[in-house]
């Protein structure tokens, strides 16, 4: 099977801080990959390298068989890379539906009716149908996270990058989110999901990557990765088995992310 996304020897540093050190990995069409790691491990920056917000110092990013290393985020979005931000960034003075229209018209290149249909589909998929006309600035955190996901979906991606969409949600809300991601993946959209809420990840992903200090310390079948000594060492002091049973690997950091002003 050919890969949808390939990183080849990608390196990125900010001064002495290593974001990615000679990273190489591939994600196939329709795969669901989870990424865990401590704060500052380079998880969100990795998304930046994939979506085009960050340019690598060395190496190549390939998407759908094309070298996209020099393309900007808008170009990559139109090729099929959809991304959510950890702290939602809706277009605040627009309604939810308008947010999605912008994404459908620009990201997916749809016009008029087709763009409306895509926006409606994204609303339905994320369970926001009743909120289409609500101004985005009035949404609460859960709804903002959903809008973030819906807007990424409205660009009709083939690869969806989810950055901590489950943080701060209650158990039933996480369960709903997992269902949404399953549905998205069932349509053939590949998903890479950064998450501190490990139980959300293990419910969906077939492959788990543990990132620390810009390198992979674990990559493979989720339970096997979480059992690896190197991974346990990264999460020193946290009981990974307890995390699997229902906790989070890094409850403090997940809570921190939620506390940022929106």
């Amino acid at each position: 099977m050919t890969s949808l996304l390939e990183l080849e020897h990608v390196t990125k540093r900010f001064g002495r801080v290593v974001i990615a050190e000679d990273l190489s990995f591939a994600v196939g069409a329709g795969d669901v990959v989870g990424i865990v790691g401590p704060n500052g491990a380079g998880k969100t920056s990795l998304f930046g390298l994939i979506s085009g917000d960050l340019a690598p110092d060395a190496g190549q990013v390939r998407f759908a068989g094309r070298n996209v290393t020099r393309l900007d985020p808008a170009d990559r979005c139109r090729l099929g890379v959809g991304r959510t931000y950890q702290v939602p960034r809706p277009f605040a003075d627009m309604t939810v539906f308008e947010n999605l229209l912008v994404a459908a018209q620009q990201g997916a290149g749809l016009r008029r009716r087709a763009s409306y249909a895509a926006a409606v589909a994204a609303l339905e998929r994320t369970g926001m149908s009743s909120q289409g006309n609500v101004p985005a600035e009035r949404l609460g955190l859960l709804q903002r996270k959903r809008l973030e996901l819906a807007r990424a979906l409205a660009t009709q991606p083939t690869l969806l990058l989810l950055d901590e969409v489950a943080g701060g949600l209650t158990d039933p809300e996480v369960a709903q989110l997992v269902e949404i991601v399953r549905g998205v993946n069932a349509d053939g959209i590949a998903v890479i999901w950064i998450e501190h809420v490990v139980r959300a990840l293990t419910a969906v992903v077939s492959r788990l990557i543990c990132l620390a200090g810009g390198t992979f310390v674990g990559d493979g079948e989720p339970t096997a990765v979480l059992a690896e000594p190197a991974v346990r060492e990264v999460f020193l002091g946290t009981d990974v088995t307890a995390a699997l049973a229902g906790g989070t690997l890094e409850t403090t950091s997940a809570a921190d992310a939620e506390r940022e002003p929106s």
């Binding site: 979506s51 900007d72 960034r89 627009m94 912008v102 994404a103 620009q106 997916a108 763009s115 660009t155």
Partner: peptide, 21 residues
Amino acid sequence: SYGRLIRAVADDQEAAQLSGA
């Protein structure tokens, strides 16, 4: 739709780019 796009970019240039603008 162009007007909406202008408002989106005015609001958050990076987020607009991630939506393909």
